[in-house]
Simulated scan of single mutants.
Amino acid sequence: MAIDSALEAVRAGMDYERLRLDAASRNIANANVPVAHGKAATLWRVDGGVAAGGFARVAGSPDDLVIGEREAQTREVHDPGHPMANAEGMVRYPQVDLVQEMTTMMTASRGYEANVRSFNFLRNMMLRAIEIGAK
């Protein structure tokens, strides 16, 4: 395996984990944002990559990865004084599983850190090879 392709795989992994982190943090941020009646609640997710073609696709073309929205369930809270309450006094919010989103954030953060360590290891190995070759 050429060093360039290894560095590209590490870069793709860092891109993927960054997008997962971004999607999870957006979902957590929107957990308490009311949804207008007549509109669908949405949650963020990473589209492309693993879901669309396996690890080889993620490693080969990280540019295909995007953050997309998907329709989500809603939860209703009784708050008659809220400006977005319906006639029964219910306000709709997206159904966000905070435990799942926090778990995603933690695993994405650890995955990103692992990719950074791999990148630094490969970089140091290249520098050492250049140093040896210069002697």
Rank of each mutant, 00 (worst) to 15 (best):
M102A: 15
D63W: 04
P83N: 09
P80E: 08
L65S: 00
G81I: 02
R57T: 07
P34C: 00
D63I: 05
M105I: 10
Y93L: 11
G89H: 12
P94C: 08
V58I: 12
N120P: 00
A59G: 09
D47T: 13
V99Q: 14
W44H: 09
F119W: 12
S61F: 05
G111C: 08
S61P: 01
M106T: 14
V33H: 06
M90T: 01
E101G: 07
M106S: 13
V91D: 02
V35C: 03
M102I: 14
V66D: 13
H37R: 12
R70C: 05
P83I: 05
A72F: 04
A108V: 04
T42N: 07
R45I: 02
V91E: 01
S109Y: 06
A87P: 04
G89A: 13
E88Y: 10
K39Q: 15
N120E: 14
P62S: 11
P83R: 07
G89Y: 11
L98F: 14
G38F: 06
V58L: 09
Y112F: 15
A59N: 08
R117W: 07
A114R: 02
P80S: 10
E71C: 05
R45C: 03
A114L: 07
A40D: 15
L98D: 09
H37F: 07
G54M: 08
S109K: 11
H78Q: 13
G53L: 09
A36T: 04
G49H: 02
D64T: 14
T103G: 14
A41V: 00
A56I: 07
V58G: 00
V66W: 05
N86F: 10
T107R: 09
V33P: 00
E69W: 01
D97M: 11
A40W: 08
R75F: 03
T104H: 03
G111M: 07
R57C: 03
Q73P: 02
N115P: 03
A41H: 02
G53T: 09
G38H: 09
N115W: 00
V96P: 04
R110F: 06
A51H: 11
A41C: 05
T107C: 05
P62A: 12
A108Q: 04
R117L: 08
E69N: 07
A41F: 02
P94S: 12
V91G: 03
M84S: 11
K39E: 13
T74H: 02
V116H: 01
R92Y: 06
W44F: 13
R57E: 07
A87T: 14
M105Y: 06
G81R: 11
G48Y: 04
A85P: 06
R117H: 11
I67K: 04
A52F: 10
G89C: 12
N86Q: 12
G49Y: 02
R45S: 07
V99F: 14
V116Q: 09
A36C: 02
E113C: 04
G49A: 09
P80N: 11
A87S: 15
N115G: 08
A85H: 06
G54D: 10
D63S: 15
H82W: 04
A72L: 07
E71I: 13
D63Q: 15
